[in-house]
C-alpha cells in the first residue's frame, strides 16, 4: 500500500509549476516543448493518483490517451520547428514575432 495520495498531488502540483515557469521564462523552443512535457507528466501523475484513490481504471485509460496525443503533438511540433529553422535559422521563440500587431 503506497502512501497517502495527497503527497502525490502535491508533487504533481510542484512539477506542474516548474514546467509552467520553464515554459514562460525559457526562450529555446525545444526547451519550451520539454517544459510542456513536464506539465503533461504532472497531469498524468494526478490522473493515476486519482485512479488509485477512487479505484477507477478510467484515470489510467485517460493517461493512455494523453500519452498518444503527446506523442503526436511532439512529432508535429518538432516538424514545425525544423521547418521554421530551415527558413529562419533559429530556435529562439523571440525571433518569431513577425505577427506583431
Amino acid at each position: 500500500m503506497s502512501i497517502n495520495g495527497d503527497w502525490y498531488l502535491i508533487l504533481a502540483a510542484a512539477l506542474f509549476a516548474i514546467g509552467a515557469v520553464g515554459l514562460l521564462v525559457r526562450r529555446n523552443v525545444l526547451v519550451m516543448f520539454m517544459c510542456i512535457e513536464l506539465m503533461l507528466n504532472a497531469a498524468n501523475l494526478t490522473f493515476v493518483t486519482f485512479s488509485r484513490m477512487l479505484g477507477d481504471i478510467g484515470g489510467q485509460a485517460v493517461v493512455f490517451f494523453v500519452l498518444v496525443v503527446a506523442a503526436a503533438e511532439v512529432v508535429i511540433g518538432l516538424g514545425i520547428v525544423v521547418t521554421i529553422f530551415r527558413r529562419r535559422v533559429s530556435t529562439t521563440a523571440d525571433d518569431l514575432h513577425v505577427l506583431k500587431g
Binding site: 515554459l23 514562460l24 523571440d94 514575432h97 513577425v98 506583431k100
Partner: peptide, 17 residues
C-alpha cells in the same frame, strides 16, 4: 488595442497563465 499583440509567443503564454 494592437499594442497587446506583441508577436512574442511567450507573452501569449503569460496570458494563458
Amino acid at each position: 488595442a494592437r499594442r497587446f499583440q506583441t508577436g512574442y509567443v511567450r507573452n501569449y503564454a503569460l496570458a494563458i497563465a
